[in-house]
Each structure stands twice: as C-alpha cells, then as structure tokens.
Amino acid sequence: LLFSSNNSGGQFKIGERGSNLLVYAPQRAVLTFSNGTEINPDTLTPNKNVVISENLLINKKAAGIVELKTIGKGLKPVINGTIQTFQATKYTLVLTDGTKVYLNANSQLTFPEIFSKTDRVVNLKGEGYFEVTKTSKHTKFFVKTNEQVVKVLGTKFNIKSYNKTSVQTILLEGSVSISPADKFFHSVIIKPNQQAILKNNGVQISKIEASKALAWKDGFFVFNGDNTLDMLSEIARWYSLELDTVNAGHLKEYYGKIPSNVNLGQLIELLNYSGVHVKVYKDDLGKRKLFIL
C-alpha cells in the first residue's frame, strides 16, 4: 500500500488530549560556519554561488541539496562547520571532497570546511547516510559518534546513533571497519547487506536488505510486516514525538510504505485505516506522544 501527498515536511501543533495534527508549518535546517556565518539553506537561490569565506562557497543544487566548494589558492584546513536538521526535515550536504551526506531529521553533522591532505574526519549525532568519495591519495574517511568510530576508504553506508545504548551501522557498498569507543572490544568489519549493532560496547553482526532499511533517505517509511514498532519509533522521532509503547503487544503488523512528507494527521489516518491504531496526545506534563491504541 502506497500513500502519496504533495505536502512538505514541517512543524506541527497539537491541541488537547486525543486530537490529531491541526497546524503544519515549514521546518528547516541550519548551516553554521567557522567564521560565524549562519545559513538556512532553504533561503538560497538554486544554482547560485554564495561566498562563505575567501576559500569556501555554497551552492544550492536543488530543494534539500546543498554543495560546498573550495575556491582560491593556498588552501589550508580550517576548523569545523556544522549542519543541524530539525523535526520532519532531511538534507543532503556535499562536502568539499565530494562526499555526499544524507542527514535525517533531528541530526547534526560536524565537518571540516576544508579537508586536510591526510585523514578526513566528521562527527555525527543522529542518523546519516554516507557516499564517500575516494581521493587521489586514497585518504581514509572516519565517522565518529560518541560510541564508535567507522573507518572507510570509499563506500556507501548508514549510521544511526540517536540512541546511545544502541548504534546501528548498515553497509550498502564497499566495506567499513567499526571500532567501539571502549578499547576493550575489538574492531569488526562488515560487508554489503550487513548491519552491525553496537550495544554495551559489543558489536553484533547480521544480514539485512540494506536498500529497504535505508528508504528514509529516499523519503519513505517502509513497513515490511515485522517492523511496525520500529517504524512507529521512526515516525515519532521524525515528528518530535515520544512513542508510548504500553500497548505495543496490540500492534498489527503492516506491509507498505508511506512518504515522509505527508502531514501527521494524514499519516495517522492512513495507519488507522490499515489496522495500526494510534493517536497523538499531550500527557499531563505537556509531552507530545504517539500512543498505540
């Protein structure tokens, strides 16, 4: 079952207990550079270069896609810039080495505005999918979270690190080495269509259909018949809700995919129609929750 809509992602407001989405307004991402420049990429004119510094410019390639480019001569590595996404927003950032990073909602990537000639290192909070570009000198690329370090040369992979007690790494192409922050545990290498789950600083490896697991970067929530609770967790995170799982045992498994750019009211209506009964409410402390009926 596929449900489509032309609505854009955004921020929502909820009324009293039991009410669905009433108001849906545009959301955004923010890029912050080392010289203090702060940019909302949605405000940029497509295909127009904007100079950030004497050695750096930014270009909006299309909606939700921005590219950083180096300019001038005598380039020197500089301190990091940052991109932060908020609820119901995802962005693609092309770094100055050509690496593409697809950043999911409520995530943050810290990156060198200009890479050095040795190792390339970025830091991730939340979830990001990486297509790493090989350099002429075959410099290694590292993605650091608080819990682990992933080392690659040129490959396609995804890291989800919202939950500090469980970090997921999925490999689509190439190979990556995963090193837990706790040096007591050994590094592991995973292959395409494998996932590594880091829990308590130990790593568990299993097979997975990577392309379906990474559907978020293409704008979909994909239900495969046995992941309904996981997808409700993804939906709750996307809309900055807290998932109430007290009735999780009542869940009906669901097959289908839903575009992530629908508004929350439409999504809940569709889930209820399919037999996955949920509602949005505020608890007594004012927390917005997605409740399983």
Rank of each mutant, 00 (worst) to 15 (best):
A248C: 08
S233D: 15
L290R: 04
F130Y: 09
V78C: 01
N104R: 05
N40Y: 12
F184N: 13
Q194H: 11
G275W: 05
A105E: 08
K191I: 05
T37W: 02
V66M: 03
K69I: 06
K137A: 15
A210W: 00
V262G: 10
L2Y: 08
Q266A: 11
L75F: 08
Q195F: 06
H138M: 13
F86C: 06
D244R: 06
G98C: 12
Y102V: 00
Y102M: 10
N193T: 11
K199S: 14
V132A: 07
S240H: 09
T135M: 12
I189L: 08
Y24H: 14
S4R: 09
N272C: 09
S136W: 03
S211C: 00
V143L: 04
Q27K: 09
L153I: 13
G219T: 07
N6Q: 14
V30H: 04
S240V: 02
L293D: 15
L243Y: 01
Q195M: 14
Y91N: 05
L271K: 07
N247T: 05
K100Q: 13
K125L: 13
Q168Y: 01
E253H: 06
L171S: 01
S8T: 14
A25N: 14
Q266K: 14
F157N: 07
T155C: 11
I39N: 06
D218C: 08
I189T: 14
F220Y: 15
T139K: 11
K212A: 12
V152N: 01
I235L: 15
P46F: 03
M231G: 02
K164L: 11
R237I: 06
L241Y: 01
I14F: 11
V101L: 02
V280Q: 03
P77E: 10
D283H: 05
T135D: 14
P180H: 03
I189E: 12
S211F: 09
A236I: 05
F111G: 00
I170P: 00
G36P: 06
T139M: 08
F111K: 02
N47F: 08
I178A: 03
R120V: 03
V222D: 09
K279R: 13
E269M: 08
D42P: 01
N224H: 04
K76M: 13
K100E: 14
E147F: 00
K282M: 12
T139G: 13
T37S: 13
H250Q: 15
Q11M: 10
K151C: 05
I170D: 03
V150Q: 04
L251G: 07
L243T: 06
I14A: 08
